[in-house]
């Protein structure tokens, strides 16, 4: 469980991809996402996944993205099984399931390489309302915190004799109630504390607050943008009309 949780937690790493402007990272992620949506055969899936793993390797997040995909594998297996049950051929069901992995992988690249502060700047650049940006970024920022809370709650309940791995799927689900209730209560209490702390620090006092950081694409950002477009656009054309 803790091994999987690590796959969702952003960590500051020095890599060429991490240093790019967040808008460029978002563009690359959207391009890979689009490519993943377009795949329809095994070679196309392999090309899309190779692109994702190549970027993950440059970003030094290969191990962490593997953890995220391990977690996603459970859902991919469900998708595969449902497709088989409704009569899809084996290879098509396989491609659809792997396509799901590619979609998750492409979005994970952005979230595993972009700190919440940069995410906030990107959303503000898109001129989204400040309160929505704040709510979204706070939710992203608290994902790892909630993960760690969940692990601590599980430890506390296991120490009181709760056996999460025992019984059939329904009784296992019921056994998660002692984990979910403290987690939800804790999250609600924390959100109240956060709201008070933000108000105490003058959140919302002025309509247009100044920002400490400014977005700047830079030379390498421009190079990465051009390179990604020149690679992805022909590939997307190939997937759509030729393969």
């Amino acid at each position: 469980m803790q091994w999987i949780a690590q796959g969702f937690i952003f960590r500051r790493i020095t890599s060429p991809f991490h240093q790019l402007d967040p808008r460029v990272k978002l563009l690359v992620s959207i391009e890979l996402f689009t490519l993943s949506l377009l795949v329809g055969s095994l070679p196309e899936v392999i090309i899309a996944l190779s692109g994702i793993f190549a970027i993950a390797s440059i970003s030094k997040i290969l191990r962490r993205i593997s953890r995220t995909l391990t977690y996603t594998l459970f859902f991919a297996i469900i998708i595969f099984s449902i497709n088989i049950l409704v009569g899809y051929p084996l290879m098509d069901a396989f491609v659809i399931a792997v396509r799901f992995l590619a979609i998750v992988g492409s979005t994970s690249i952005f979230f595993l390489t972009t700190p919440p502060d940069e995410l906030e700047l990107v959303m503000k650049w898109f001129r989204l309302p400040r309160d929505i940006v704040f709510a979204f970024v706070t939710a992203v920022r608290f994902v790892p915190v909630l993960m760690m809370d969940a692990l601590q709650i599980m430890d506390a309940q296991k120490s009181r004799g709760l056996e999460l791995q025992k019984g059939n799927i329904f009784s296992r689900f019921r056994r998660f109630i002692p984990i979910l209730i403290p987690l939800i209560v804790d999250a609600v209490l924390r959100s109240g504390d956060l709201a008070e702390a933000m108000e105490a620090r003058a959140y919302g006092a002025v309509k247009k607050p100044t920002s400490l950081y400014q977005l700047e694409i830079g030379v390498w950002g421009k190079v990465a943008t051009i390179l990604s477009i020149t690679l992805i656009v022909p590939l997307a054309y190939l997937f759509l009309f030729l393969m």
Binding site: D149, Q152, I153, D155, A156, Q157, K158, S159, R160, G161, I177, P178, I181, P182, V185, D186, L189
Partner: peptide, 16 residues
């Protein structure tokens, strides 16, 4: 745990 009881730091992490 039947023999070794651990009392954790944060009560909110166990009360449900």
């Amino acid at each position: 745990s039947r023999k070794i009881g651990i009392i954790f730091q944060n009560p909110d992490h166990q009360i449900f």
